[in-house]
């Protein structure tokens, strides 16, 4: 299986989160490098995805989608910095 990238996780992550996590910046717990989730190297095949840091190859995120539940393992990420609309912005129609 060839690697794809974090873009390919967008659908599975949007099933779990109300925001698009692929635009978030994950800081790798292994090497400390920040990386946009869309840029992570992702190995599949679905329903089990492993996303690795492009700098050190450490596992940043793992996502498994079962028929009735999903497992999300984020122990390889120190933090996720998620772009949000301004707090006082009016609701988007």
């Amino acid at each position: 299986m060839t690697a794809v990238d974090g873009n390919a996780m967008a659908g599975d992550l949007r099933e779990l989160f109300a925001v698009d996590v692929t635009t978030a910046v994950a800081t790798c717990a292994g090497c400390g490098e920040p990386c946009v989730v869309a840029r992570l190297r992702v190995w599949g095949p679905a329903p089990g995805l492993v996303a690795r840091c492009p700098s050190c190859d450490g596992v940043v995120l793992r996502l498994v989608r079962g028929p009735e539940r999903a497992w999300l393992d984020l122990r390889g990420a120190v933090s996720l910095q998620v772009p949000m609309p301004p707090r006082d912005a009016p609701a988007t129609p």
Partner: peptide, 9 residues
């Protein structure tokens, strides 16, 4: 289908 997804590319 489901989408649209992906806000980075």
């Amino acid at each position: 289908l489901r989408g649209p997804v992906g806000g980075w590319f």
